[in-house]
Amino acid sequence: MTVFLCGFMGCGKSTIGKLAAKKLGCGFCDTDDLIVRTLEMTIPEIFEKKGEPFFRLTEAEIVKSLCGKTTVAACGGGAMLNPDTARAAREAGAAVVYIDVPFEVCYERIKDDTNRPIVVSSTKEQLEELYNSRKDIYLKHSTIRLECSGSPVENAELIVRSLRK
């Protein structure tokens, strides 16, 4: 089974995803890492040289290529905002898990991250607006929503339990 983790930047998709994959006995990947390796450019370089639309197109292709694989995939914050990408995941029978974490927690984790072009070019207020605008889309495009307020280990266990139901 393919499990896609979605949610706002800094919600813990990569950290929780690695732990959940281990508990499930399957592989783990991070779509941002796959994009960086595929294009041989950092994310800031991709945004600067190719633009965000190109990045989003590449991201969608990577997500679609993972459908049907036995893996837990941490998606970039914008991956499951694309209706075509979310539909491809659903049609492939993948679980799309929305990692719901309050904005303030996400912000504390991302505020100084220079590898996130959207963070670097946005104020806290703009990021909160983006967070709020994405929340309903994450809900719409996910098959499971989890409030992840515990430790990474506890949150990974939440994912595993929800998938085994």
Rank of each mutant, 00 (worst) to 15 (best):
Y131C: 04
I159S: 02
N115T: 11
M80I: 04
T70W: 10
M41V: 05
T38S: 13
E61S: 14
L34E: 15
G10N: 11
G7E: 09
K49H: 05
I62Q: 12
K64H: 11
T58S: 01
E147L: 05
C29G: 11
V105A: 02
R87F: 03
V36A: 08
R134S: 01
N155T: 07
A88L: 11
F47I: 03
N115H: 09
K18V: 13
R87T: 11
T31G: 12
R116K: 15
A95T: 03
K64R: 04
F28G: 08
P102I: 08
A89S: 03
A73L: 14
R109H: 00
L57G: 11
R134N: 08
I159L: 05
D112M: 14
C29E: 15
C26N: 09
T123F: 09
C29A: 13
V153T: 01
T143K: 03
L130R: 07
G51Q: 15
M1P: 04
F28Q: 05
I35C: 00
G7A: 07
I99W: 07
H141Q: 08
T123W: 10
E48F: 00
E147P: 00
R56L: 14
E40T: 03
T38E: 14
D112Q: 15
R134Q: 03
N115K: 10
C75N: 10
R90T: 14
Y98R: 01
G17Y: 09
D84G: 14
I16L: 00
T42C: 00
M9A: 12
E108N: 06
P152K: 08
G17R: 15
C75R: 06
A60V: 01
E129F: 04
K140T: 12
R134H: 05
I110H: 06
A21R: 10
